[in-house]
């Protein structure tokens, strides 16, 4: 039999072992992606378009699509999330109507992204006739993004002390003006951190996009800036395969001979992008915070 001290020692070492295993899993994943992927990354890989049936394609269009979709979906979702968060944190009374809306946000955040994508497909691609397009895709991404973004902005607002709101109220300023001119600026660092983190999540999303933004991309003419031309990169009505969708597609359809190599390169690019965003979130948050508190 063991005494309690020995059991303690055993159990604690066991917990150490678990933590080490988890850390090793991450180490393995990241090194696997980077070691296999980075050799594939070259200027040519990043700057040339993909190929459908032959080896040697690049990811330029997918990379552009990813960024474009991200920006467009953020333009749509930030104002909505901001409004909802302001209402929830600054105005919302405690009643059944509000708790139903809060539940709705929770439900949205727990919906599988493939279901969100399918809804986008049925509603925007087919019903509204937007087709497989950047617009449909960014709306689907917005649905996927809204709950998290709303919650993160809400938390940022809640962290600003009530003293500031009282100060506004005592001066006969409306809550809305106080929020816009006092609370939001003070909460900005953590809001930006939240937005950048959400961007990192959106970057890697694919399931919501395969039936909304589509799985193909027309040949793009980078100099064509006419938003109505089907070959213009900025046309929001054209289909747009993103990097994440590209990885999924070339692996499940296997029409390209070097699918594994391209996926490895793309995975590494995607992972590096996500890491950059995560790093940026922390860095920006700290920097703006310091600037704001240092006084002008």
């Amino acid at each position: 039999m063991f005494n309690s001290k020995q059991i303690n020692k055993l159990a604690i070492s066991f917990i150490y072992a678990i933590a080490i295993i988890v850390a090793l899993i991450l180490l393995f994943l990241v090194s696997n992606i980077l070691i296999n992927g980075i050799p594939e990354i070259s200027w040519k890989f990043i700057a040339s378009p993909s190929k459908t049936f032959e080896a040697g394609g690049g990811i330029s269009v997918q990379l552009f699509n990813t960024i474009y979709l991200l920006i467009l979906s953020m333009i749509i979702s930030i104002p909505i999330a901001l409004g909802a968060a302001i209402y929830l944190n600054e105005y919302a009374p405690k009643n059944d109507f509000i708790s139903v809306l809060k539940t709705a946000i929770e439900v949205l955040s727990s919906l599988p992204s493939i279901v969100v994508g399918l809804f986008g497909f049925m509603f925007f691609v087919l019903k509204f006739n937007f087709g497989f397009s950047i617009l449909s895709g960014s709306i689907a991404l917005t649905f996927f993004n809204l709950p998290l973004l709303t919650r993160s902005i809400e938390n940022s607002l809640a962290a600003i002390p009530n003293l500031q709101r009282e100060a506004g109220a005592a001066l006969g300023i409306s809550r809305f003006e106080t929020v816009i001119h006092v609370i939001l600026p003070a909460a900005l660092p953590s809001i930006i951190t939240g937005i950048v983190l959400a961007s990192g999540r959106v970057l890697g999303e694919a399931a919501a996009l395969i039936f909304t933004a589509g799985q193909s991309s027309p040949n793009l003419d980078w100099l064509n800036l006419n938003p109505f031309s089907p070959h213009s990169p900025i046309n929001p009505m054209r289909p747009a395969e993103t990097l994440a969708v590209h990885i999924w597609k070339i692996n499940s359809e296997a029409t390209i001979p070097d699918a594994t190599k391209i996926s490895a390169g793309s995975s590494a690019v995607l992972l590096i992008l996500v890491f950059i965003f995560n790093f940026l979130a922390r860095y920006l948050g700290n920097k703006i915070y310091k600037k704001m508190t240092a006084g002008k």
Binding site: L29, L203, E205, A206, A244, I247, N251, S267, L271, N278
Partner: peptide, 17 residues
């Protein structure tokens, strides 16, 4: 945090390879 950040298709790709 890094594990959370890895996109699901990348998990799929690692699974595959």
């Amino acid at each position: 945090e890094l594990l959370v950040g890895i996109p699901s298709v990348v998990y799929g790709f690692i699974g595959l390879t």
